[in-house]
Amino acid sequence: MKPYVFITRRMPAAIVEMIERECEVSMWEEEETPVPDEILAREIKRADGIFCNVSDTITKEMIDGAERLTIIATMAVGYNNIDIEAAAARGIQIAHTPGVLTETTADLTFALLMAAARRLPEGMEAIKNDEWGAWAPFFLTGQDIHHSRLGIIGMGRIGEAVARRGKGFSMEVVYHNRSRKHEAEEAIGVRYQELDELLETSDFVCLTAPYTNETHHLMNAEAFKKMKDSAIFVNTSRGSTVDEKALFTALKNGEIRGAGLDVFEQEPISSSHPLLSLPNVTLLPHIGSASEKTRWRMAEMTANHVLQGIRGEALDHPVKE
């Protein structure tokens, strides 16, 4: 009897066929709608392997109900949607996809920075609403990016990639991380700062830190008050690293100039989300890694992780408790 694998979102046929060579496979056929919790729990109960993604919440109760599960492979870098402790207690391995999406997510991070700085969404709305009249000296003036100061919170792979892009724009780049990154300082030419100093002195603040208990609402009302009133905040980490109510207040009251966000506390957001009522925020639907090439590589890596786990082989990219 072949091992059984459940895929939680529709994948290209070639990815499914990779797993089908060795396993029985079933798949939630919806591309945009997450698998309901009751179906996910039922599949986890009988599966040997789970191919999931960032929108699937895999709880302790689901894991404790598993009868044969050996591997949970997520098509994402983050894994806070999976109860890692419960999986470890049952000897179930977890795999994720670091590295492969670094450059693509850094591209998107810098695109948000540039769009917010130069007020690109506002410019598009001005055209749509027939508000573009004669040339005016200060119409839609934004912030210079070149020769400004970029502060990066979280100097992992993506943070370093964003720093390299900043240096390419002649920016002064500073960073804060839970530990100093001396190699990055030397290789990229960045400088370490304590968090308060970074917030107080940066023209742009990019948050690329992973979500942990320590980073929950790291950017809160106090943090935004420390930023320059001309500063722009960008988040491509996880939504729960930011207190969205505090961000809304900071943007509305002019405590900071603008923001660019790809992630939110609860996803997807609706068209009635308060942040959408503000002109000085650029919002995207969590597309940081969404290039065709990168998403394909992520899916392929996740399929390989499923097979490695079922075979009992070492995982290329394991998550450890």
Rank of each mutant, 00 (worst) to 15 (best):
E185M: 00
N280K: 14
I232A: 08
R118K: 08
T97Q: 02
T212P: 11
I44R: 06
R119P: 12
I92C: 06
L284Y: 09
G258Q: 12
V205N: 04
E43R: 12
G65D: 10
E292P: 13
E186G: 14
M27V: 03
T57A: 15
E32C: 12
E186T: 10
N80T: 00
E244Y: 04
G154M: 01
K45A: 10
R165I: 06
I256E: 01
A89N: 15
K128T: 04
A117W: 00
I63K: 08
I50C: 10
E197C: 13
L108T: 05
R180H: 12
M18A: 11
T212L: 04
E183Y: 11
E122N: 01
V173P: 02
E30C: 03
H217D: 09
P137H: 07
F138L: 10
E32L: 08
D107N: 08
Q308E: 07
T8F: 03
G156Y: 03
A95I: 07
R90A: 05
E183T: 14
K293T: 14
G99E: 08
P34G: 06
I145D: 00
I72L: 09
I232H: 02
H286E: 11
I39Q: 15
A187G: 13
N253F: 09
I188E: 08
F169S: 10
G288Y: 00
T241K: 03
A13D: 08
T201M: 08
M62F: 10
D262R: 04
E197D: 13
M298Y: 02
T102F: 05
G260D: 04
E244D: 08
R68M: 04
P34D: 05
V281G: 02
L275K: 10
D144N: 14
M155C: 14
D83W: 10
E32S: 12
D144S: 13
T241W: 00
I310G: 06
A314F: 06
E29I: 11
E122K: 03
V306Y: 12
R238Y: 00
G142N: 05
K2A: 07
V54Y: 07
